[in-house]
């Protein structure tokens, strides 16, 4: 618990934490306000009505979908930044030299990351709801659906699934940065993985549906290839995707822990 509490203190005073969630919430607010102030003028025959983004109860799902989409990228960067800096700054080395268990140190650090992600995502979601409500008011849309019982009932489970999915992407970045022993390398590989997977999805959909960022969407999207997207007959079910997301999460942490136990810590 000492390590976990210490990990939390370190994360909650770190600029990267505020930057990650600040950017996510800031972009969400900007999009909502842009839609409101333009009264959804960007709509076309193919894209639907942008005002739906800020129309409740659908706005809840849209906020989650946005958080999950961009949150996956931010998650992988955040996980890589935290793990990589432990090597780059040499703070992991210092703790190991004090007799601390390497794997326990890393897993406690990640547990703190997972909790910070939960809190950060919850705050971001609440900011998103307020921004959507405000934008809806600006656009002259009613807030009748804001208390929709069915949506609100499903919200905690969807949020929890989204949190697990983003935590899995953070674990991926965490593991990559641990293997690379570098903050920058971890972030670089994480970003490349994110865009590489998105690009590969065009050509290899049957393979990519098992990859972490796609699985993250499917785990919340309820059998579609993306949250809010139309159901895809070939897509995994949400529960299967959630299991596979968990496998990625645990697998990444096991790889990071095993590597750290075996690593020769030099430099």
């Amino acid at each position: 618990m000492r390590l976990f509490r210490s990990g939390l203190r370190k994360l909650t005073t770190r600029l990267a934490t505020f930057l990650t969630f600040g950017l996510l919430a800031g972009l969400l607010v900007l999009i909502d306000l842009a839609v409101a102030t333009t009264r959804g003028q960007g709509g076309n025959d193919n894209g639907g009505d942008p005002l739906l983004l800020i129309t409740f109860p659908g706005a809840y799902d849209n906020i989650l979908a946005f958080m999950l989409g961009l949150g996956g990228l931010f998650g992988v960067i955040y996980g890589a930044a935290i793990a990589g800096s432990e090597w780059t700054w040499g703070t992991f080395k210092t703790s190991v030299a004090r007799g601390e268990s390497r794997s326990r140190y890393l897993l406690s650090t990640f547990a703190a990351i997972a909790l910070v992600l939960a809190i950060g995502l919850l705050i971001t979601f609440l900011i998103g709801v307020v921004a959507a409500a405000l934008s809806a008011t600006i656009a002259g849309i009613g807030l009748d659906g804001i208390g929709d019982a069915d949506t609100l009932t499903a919200l905690p489970e969807n949020f929890a699934r989204g949190w697990v999915a983003i935590t899995a992407t953070a674990a991926l970045g965490f593991a990559v940065a641990t293997l690379a022993r570098s903050q920058l390398a971890g972030i670089g590989v994480g970003i490349a993985f994110y865009f590489g997977e998105t690009f590969a999805g065009i050509f290899l959909p049957d393979v990519v549906k098992y990859m972490p960022f796609h699985l993250a969407n499917t785990a919340v999207g309820g059998g579609s290839d993306g949250f809010g997207a139309p159901p895809d007959p070939g897509a995994l079910t949400a529960d299967t995707a959630l299991v596979l997301v968990t496998v990625w999460l645990v697998g990444s942490l096991v790889v990071a822990a095993v590597f750290s136990e075996r690593a020769e810590i030099t430099g």
Partner: peptide
Amino acid sequence: VGALVESPAFYPYLSGRENLRALAASGAP
């Protein structure tokens, strides 16, 4: 055992006191 190996390593964004507290969370109580 207390050790200082190579250059001292700290979290640059934390104070000296906070760094020592973070260090104290690992290893011996």
